[in-house]
């Protein structure tokens, strides 16, 4: 074989690799990296889709941080939502997974039933249903009436509207439950046998063996669910009819961003809001990985 032929043979795979990657490269540069940089630029401008972007420096960011009370409301609502929904959801997921892992018969059926809400929950159909479950004349109040309680209209009371969305999120504990179950099945059984021979109660086994051994899975679920909750949109949009009401009580950050971009056509302002969301997500991830050492146990 001649030298050139060898070089060609060696070089061919490298070209071929990029041919396979071509669709992704187009998408990465054209739809991800390019737009991300463009939105960074737009975040320093005022732009209403009609004229040309008008450079305003840090004005958008300054207004977000200091002068826009709706941003403050939406950050408050979103953080409250994250702080309530993530622990509750993961708590239920872990509790049910532990019970299901006890060698109970009918496990596949229970697992399927508990997973179903997770699968369906992101749809408009379920958000619509939720609106009627928690309405004044809705399902929940009819059930409460059996106990002689006259419930309020949960979705239209600013004090309770957010809780209905938290309930919707917690209701969808199925997928973290499946991840917990998969994790629980990997735990070495001999540890539990040794512990029960030494007289450890089930409760001690749970807190001293199950939880520490499961921390990598818990860590994963906390990070994923937190980021997901920060980005929640559809339930708030449907339950509040797109307004984030009553009185901004369900104005999720992403919903406000949507209103700014497509309601008021303040594209630059919306881009700034989006970049702050990225920073929040990066911050959450960074904090998670920095504190990981303190509480996540890796078997090595």
């Amino acid at each position: 074989m001649s030298v050139t032929a060898q070089i060609i043979r060696r070089r061919r795979p490298s070209l071929a690799g990029y041919v396979f990657l071509l669709p992704w490269l187009l998408g990465f540069f054209g739809l991800t990296l390019g737009p991300a940089l463009a939105s960074l630029y737009l975040s320093f401008t005022n732009y209403d889709l009609i004229g040309t972007p008008h450079w305003v420096g840090l004005e958008n960011y300054v207004r977000i941080m200091t002068a826009d009370s709706k941003v403050a409301d939406s950050v408050h609502v979103t953080l409250l939502y994250v702080a309530m929904s993530v622990p509750l959801k993961l708590g239920f997921a872990l509790a049910i997974a532990v019970v299901l892992n006890k060698g109970i018969s009918g496990l596949p059926i229970y697992r399927a039933l508990f997973y179903l809400p997770s699968l369906l929950g992101a749809s408009v159909a379920i958000a619509t249903l939720w609106r009627k479950v928690f309405a004044g004349d809705g399902l929940l109040n009819h059930v409460l009436l059996v106990f002689g309680i006259h419930g309020p209209s949960w979705v239209s009371d600013p004090n309770t509207a957010l809780y209905t969305l938290v309930a919707l999120s917690v209701w969808q504990f199925g997928s973290p439950m499946i991840i917990f179950l998969a994790g629980l099945r990997q735990l070495p059984q001999d540890l539990f046998e040794a512990a029960s021979i030494d007289g450890a109660t089930p409760r001690q086994q749970f807190w001293r063996i199950t939880v520490p051994m499961l921390t990598p899975v818990i860590f994963f679920n906390v990070v994923v669910q937190t980021i997901d909750a920060l980005k929640a949109f559809t339930p708030a949009f449907i339950v509040s009819g797109g307004s984030g009401g009553p009185i901004n009580s369900t104005l999720f950050y992403t919903l406000y961003l949507y209103q700014e971009a497509f309601g008021y056509l303040r594209m630059g302002y919306a881009a700034a809001l989006a970049w702050l969301l990225v920073l929040a997500i990066v911050a959450v991830t960074a904090v998670a990985f920095v504190t990981e050492r303190l509480w996540v146990h890796y078997d090595d």
Partner: peptide, 28 residues
């Protein structure tokens, strides 16, 4: 496949997993 830049490409793919769609929304 083996080709120069493969690992960089894979890292970039993983990175895009983290980017929320809101960031690319307006320019897209």
């Amino acid at each position: 496949m083996r080709f120069p830049g493969r690992n960089i490409c894979f890292s970039l793919m993983l990175m895009t997993l983290m980017i929320p769609y809101q960031v690319t929304l307006v320019p897209q």
